[in-house]
């Protein structure tokens, strides 16, 4: 299960929206396989009836008063954008 094929690596890269070079694909295939082989150790402990951790410190639902407050201005929100137009983020058309 832990030895990744080249197509496994390509599939993960696709899911992660990463374009990899052939050299990166080959390197990650080798390195991630080694890391996953090491990570197999976590299968050892018996976790029957052990709940997964959902929070490092147990928490109750956090509530706060619904009070209006200032957020970022449009100019501040757009200040770091690579491309803007008409008070919006500008991107290539999503639909061809």
């Amino acid at each position: 299960m832990t030895t990744l094929s080249k197509s496994d690596v390509e599939n993960i890269a696709h899911l992660a929206r990463l374009k990899l070079t052939d050299a990166e694909t080959e390197l990650f295939q080798e390195q991630l396989s080694a890391i996953l082989l090491y990570a197999e150790a976590i299968q050892q402990p018996d976790t029957t009836d052990i709940p997964p951790t959902t929070s490092a410190i147990p928490r109750h639902t956090v509530m706060r008063a619904d009070e209006p407050a200032d957020g970022l201005s449009t100019a501040e929100a757009l200040a770091n954008a690579p491309d803007t137009a008409e008070d919006s983020f500008r991107v290539k058309p999503i639909l061809p």
């Binding site: 990899l20 991630l32 976590i42 299968q43 976790t47 951790t53």
Partner: peptide
């Protein structure tokens, strides 16, 4: 960063989530 995004994406992906991410969260409880 790419290596870790890849590893994390794999641990969360369909078919591997239970064996890696969920199992890891149970061992975290231990």
């Amino acid at each position: 960063v790419k290596r870790r995004i890849m590893l994390g994406t794999y641990a969360l992906s369909a078919g591997y989530y239970d064996a890696y991410y969920l199992k890891a969260q149970k061992v975290r409880t231990l």
